[in-house]
Design a protein around this nucleic acid. Structure first.
Lengths: 120, 120, 120, 120
DNA sequence: GTGGTCTAGACCACT
DNA sequence: GTGGTCTAGACCACC
């Protein structure tokens, strides 16, 4: 029960998450070209090296791949992307459930709350 | 569609939220005495002035009240606490829905996901 | 049949290989503490960041692990080290066979050559 | 036990080695004409002067000889070529043994490893 | 112009 | 004093 303040998550991890979301959401589409390191770094106003680190990590995860002088591409392996989606959605849901339970809500109450605020 | 990095939420807002949660969760019970500013500030390792600011805000919201020389107390108005609970749960739920929708999930899918990761 | 000149392998990859060898050879022993990033960087006369990159990679491979403020340690998983040994020895052997075959030597001749230059 | 980085072997030494290998392997056959300095330099994308230096050295070793106006020829002394082959194979083998021993392998183990990765 | 690598130097949290 | 992160700025190979 601590006071863990302010998401001090390293920037490059936040970058990874944001780019992951964009890939999952189809902002960067499967098989298509990504913006260059420098463009992304500029847009996020971080140092190109930091963005590079994030992208390398994403490459390690198999979500993107790079062609030496041509740029970076989103993987054409749709399953890989689907996997990332399941992973992220689980993470968001777990965090959400944790916060709601801290409010003293039962899982039934939580579901009813989601139903209440959903769109139709 | 920005790169809003790192929880740059002001510290005192984070403090407010955490204390709100504790009141709602019953860590600090309705009608009972709160820890002193100094104690809270120490525990959260923030400047007492910052904690003071947070508590004043909570007082303005009607969640706590102070007796001149006796310290601070959680409100005995249970409805007020219930209201804060509804408020926070709405906030969490909205944030959650927003993130999940960004992943391209429909509200039906989202509900199914919550069901999937619930306990029992 | 090219003129691939001078091992232009990135420095950090060379660092990884050298450290791998030291771990396998027991210079850095299983479970024991490694020199600090700065010491290693100084000894290899590279930038600490470059050494850091090498060590991170080795951590990803499971050969070393780091304790936040305490330093880095060689894994106590001996199998992992044995695996790295097999891997490296295969690499060295393949390179060796390739070079020898380029000289027009049959694998039988190669083996006889190794026997000839072995000790005792 | 140093960090001798990156094949910092002078380029002309690398050229010598590569040409030696080609002569031994019969790419440039005993008694036959060699490509011109210009051709070789172009192929290896080095300065003709550098290639010239390499060829002079090979001439000093007796592996090639030059006819004033006619170009360069591979020596017709087959023994000389055989000698170079033995020499190179010894060098490769020594290097190989050194690396494998650094991994802590006995010479018996090394032989077994070569047997394991040989063809047939 | 691209990704990749490297250096120099700094700051942070933790102990 | 440790590992970890970040920035700024540079150079390289490849097309």
């Amino acid at each position: 029960m601590g006071w863990i303040m302010s998401g001090d998550m390293p920037i490059y991890l936040q970058l990874i998450e944001e780019i992951k979301i964009r890939i999952i959401a189809g902002v960067y589409k499967s098989g298509e070209k990504m913006p260059t390191v420098r463009e992304l770094a500029l847009e996020a106003s971080v140092n190109p090296n930091t963005m590079q680190k994030a992208l390398s990590e994403l490459e390690r995860m198999g979500l993107i791949f790079s062609q030496r002088t041509n740029g970076r591409y989103v993987t054409d392996n749709v399953e890989q992307i689907e996997l990332a989606k399941v992973d992220l959605s689980k993470m968001f849901t777990d965090e959400y459930l944790t916060m709601m339970r801290k409010l003293g809500m039962s899982d039934d109450e939580i579901i009813r709350t989601v139903e209440k605020y959903r769109n139709n």
